[in-house]
């Protein structure tokens, strides 16, 4: 799994690519702790490059969201497609989190 991030105003855009499964999911958690340490609490995750997400991946997203919420921050998602979008819908994550079709929408929202 690969991460890259860029600042847009007070929002941090994180691009996640690759596979988020039981082995790599922990990284998302670790990254989240780094954002918090850097003071970034409003995070938009661009999942356009994410090929696969397992239940362990969902759990680390939940964990990250909880941490950000604890710091009065927010976690939103954009650019979901294919299998990942399906998983988000099926698991109800699409209902739990703020979802945006594109990064522009996310930045505007």
């Amino acid at each position: 799994m690969e991460f890259s991030s860029s600042k847009h105003g007070d929002k941090l855009v994180v691009t996640v690519a690759g596979r988020m499964d039981a082995i790599t999911a922990q990284e998302f958690d670790t990254q989240c702790r780094q954002w918090l340490a850097a003071g970034d609490t409003n995070v938009i995750a661009d999942l356009s490059g994410l090929e696969y997400i397992s239940s362990a991946g969902l759990r680390s997203i939940l964990s990250a969201a909880k941490q950000l919420k604890g710091a009065q921050g927010s976690l939103a998602f954009c650019n979901l497609s294919g299998m990942v979008e399906e998983v988000f819908v099926v698991s109800g994550f699409a209902a739990m989190f703020t979802m945006h079709p594109t990064l522009e929408d996310a930045l505007a929202g």
Binding site: L58, L62, V89, V90, S91, G92, F93, A94, A95, M96
Partner: peptide
């Protein structure tokens, strides 16, 4: 079809 209701145990 799923209803889009979230996983249990979180909220």
């Amino acid at each position: 079809p799923p209803f889009g209701e979230p996983v249990a145990g979180v909220m």
